[in-house]
């Protein structure tokens, strides 16, 4: 099925803290945005599949964030929970245009 994606402006890249997460609240949804050490920006659902930990507050290492609740290791690239645990969080595409950061969300 075709899905229309909506582009939501969430702020300036320069305003995002480095090597840290940021909580973005869009209506009812909470999304965690990360600015990685290499400058790229990733967006995933702000809810750990284990017990709902807020991933935006986790420790970020390379492309992985460690959930602050029970330390599950989760890729911010593809949302996958790493071994020995399993599970997956939703990821959102991110676009950066001249420093403006957008995330793409299904309508």
């Amino acid at each position: 099925m075709e899905q229309t994606l909506r582009k939501v402006f969430i702020g300036e890249s320069a305003d995002l803290p480095e090597k840290l997460g940021k909580t973005v609240v869009i209506g009812q949804k909470e999304i965690a945005i990360f600015k990685l050490e290499n400058g790229s920006i990733k967006a995933i659902e702000n809810r750990c599949p284990h017990k709902g930990g807020v991933l935006a507050e986790g420790i970020l290492s390379g492309e992985y964030v460690f959930c602050p609740m029970h330390d599950r290791k989760i890729s911010v690239e593809n949302g996958r929970v790493q071994e020995p645990d399993d599970g997956c969080v939703k990821t959102y595409p991110v676009e950066v245009l001249e420093g403006h950061v957008f995330i793409l969300i299904a309508e």
């Binding site: 909506r6 803290p17 909580t23 973005v24 949804k29």
Partner: peptide, 14 residues
């Protein structure tokens, strides 16, 4: 304060 304590709020209805 901005980096650590503020959330970004997008007023959109999704």
């Amino acid at each position: 304060l901005r980096d650590l304590y503020e959330n970004v709020k997008v007023p959109a209805e999704i």
